[in-house]
Amino acid sequence: MWFAHGRLLTVLAWVALFILPLVLSDWNAALFAQYVTYGIFALSLALIWGGAGILSFGQAIFFGLGACSMALVTLGKLPLLGDSAWVGLLLALIIPTLAAAVLGWILFQGRALAGAQLGIVTLCAAFVAEIAARRWDFVGGFNGLFGIPPMTGLDGDILSGFATSYVVLGAALLSYLIALAVLRSPLGTVLAAIRNNESRTAHFGYDVRLYKIFVFALSGALAGLAGALFALQFGFVSPTLIGFGLSTEALIWVAVGGRGVLMAAFLGALIVRSSESVLSSALDQYWLLALGIVFVATVVFAPQGLLGNVLRLPSPRRFATPKKLEEKSRSVGQVEPDAK
């Protein structure tokens, strides 16, 4: 029933998001922009998790790398590249993409790691990255990098919270459309096949490894974008950004929102982050306890997430079937988490 409204509700959600800054104060608009940044990060995770069934505990590596790249460039630590935020953005896309491609190559070459092994190895990678970032003074060491200049307009003025929120929203919509286009293309169908049964997909003649590395790298780029936006908004980059803590936090957002549907994962980040800022003052330290319990309950009793079923989109048109068969085949090619 809800199913039929997925497309409409998704469009409405975007419209609402774009109207929201108009009614917020400048301070709250800036806050909203931060949540949307986390939303982009959640999108990057949902792309590999919901799309290809790759559960990574190290997604923050790419977020952190993006943030670091932006910080290093804009602070002028890489003199050859100048200090423009645009160059920073470019680097924040390239470095995480390369890192993800290399990590993906390590993880998925030959007999691909999956399940427990994949989870623990990515978790480990996040730990290593965080420890390494603390030890490396070039990226700020234990304290991180400070004084990153905020976003400026074309005229060189610092953007208001209101303007920032639209820049970030634009980036989010673009990321969403890219991820959506990938998942709804034939490539996305292959990814869904890999998610459901990897060895069978390989037997059909698909080079499973390349597909996985590609989507992993793309997801790295989106995470890097989120990291770069983060650095510009917060003005600092600390080693915790690259580590295990933020990686798992993102898993919570995506699982609570809905791992199988991009928009649900995106809104999951917004919902969890905004309820945190509202509730953490009211609930004090009980907030984290409540979050843990809500997270467990969602995973156990609503594996599709709170919004997954509401925002699920109909199948791409190439799967369109005569009306009579539609009922049976509507899940074909749909981004739908399996129960494994």
Partner: peptide
């Protein structure tokens, strides 16, 4: 299987 990882992670937070 994947959900056991997530659920026990939630338990650990709580």
């Amino acid at each position: 299987f994947i959900d056991t990882i997530l659920a026990t992670w939630g338990i650990s937070i709580a």
